[in-house]
Design a protein around this nucleic acid. Structure first.
Lengths: 146, 146
DNA sequence: TTTGAATAGTTGCTTAAACAACTATATGCC
DNA sequence: GGCATATAGTTGTTTAAGCAACTATTCAAA
């Protein structure tokens, strides 16, 4: 493989992920404007629980690409906010199953709408074909490194 | 513009930026293996100073897409590591100009090589054409939101 | 020229990430 | 059964991000 496939000056945007930072900030701002008082990291955990309620912390680690201490503390904070509950598994007492509260269930529709709007703001002027290719590249990078 | 340009299930990878997180982690790991004891955030500041030594903190904010407190503290830590020096501007006493030390200058070649290798690992199997489109999309997103 | 606004940087606070070290429970093998 | 190992989760520590509030300096306009 050629060692210098890319010009050095082009490295930076790939490594720093300014685009995803910008999306994250905008989403946080849009949550705040709608008086939704959660962080985007907390939202990303809820996102997976909305898809499947009752996941173990380890499953949340895999789903959100975070390590175990990060999930422990995100779940701590979500519990303080009364958005999730830890329930010890009866089959395997090492495992905490995480369940959404009613309050968290009620957040789904509103916050998914805000996330959709945020993505529409972010992707103005970008064609669906370009988006598909960008997603493939990002997925490929993720697979190469995980 | 249509309101639901994207399927909801496709949102997540865009918002969370798993790919850039993965690149960042791999770069950090590769620095560590080479006994380069700096964080990727510190490296990203040095990166811009290698391109142009003697920038103000505000210029570093713009270049690295960080806010002022973040740069204050990154410069604090880089000063502790003796990699940069703050020099008060004589023209405008509000401004700190940040200069690389000799130690930091010596880090450039090695760490840029590691960054190049890391990108090559990340982008295996991705064509230059795909990379160009992905970069355009990410740049477009950044412009839309900044 | 003085007063109000803008700019550059710092500090305090909360949230989160990464890593290492730790506890508790389960599993597999002899 | 008992011991080594793997798995699930927690705690401690350092680094960093984001926001608000703050100080110091400069600029601009009356």
């Amino acid at each position: 493989m050629p060692n210098n496939q890319f010009k050095k000056g082009e490295l930076y945007s790939f490594i720093t992920g300014k685009a995803s930072t910008a999306i994250a900030r905008r989403l946080q701002k849009n949550f705040k404007q709608a008086n939704v008082d959660i962080t985007i990291e907390q939202w990303s955990v809820l996102y997976h629980l909305w898809k499947q309620d009752g996941m173990s912390q380890q499953q949340l680690c895999d789903a959100t690409f975070r390590d175990k201490p990060s999930i422990t503390r995100l779940v701590d904070n979500l519990e303080k906010l009364k958005l999730v509950k830890r329930v010890a598994s009866k089959n395997d007492r090492r495992i905490n199953m995480i369940y959404l509260t009613k309050e968290a269930q009620q957040l789904q529709e509103q916050t998914m709408e805000i996330a959709n709007q945020t993505l529409n703001e972010a992707l103005q002027g970008v064609t669906n074909g370009q988006i598909e290719i960008a997603k493939e590249v990002l997925q490929n990078v993720y697979e190469n490194l995980k």
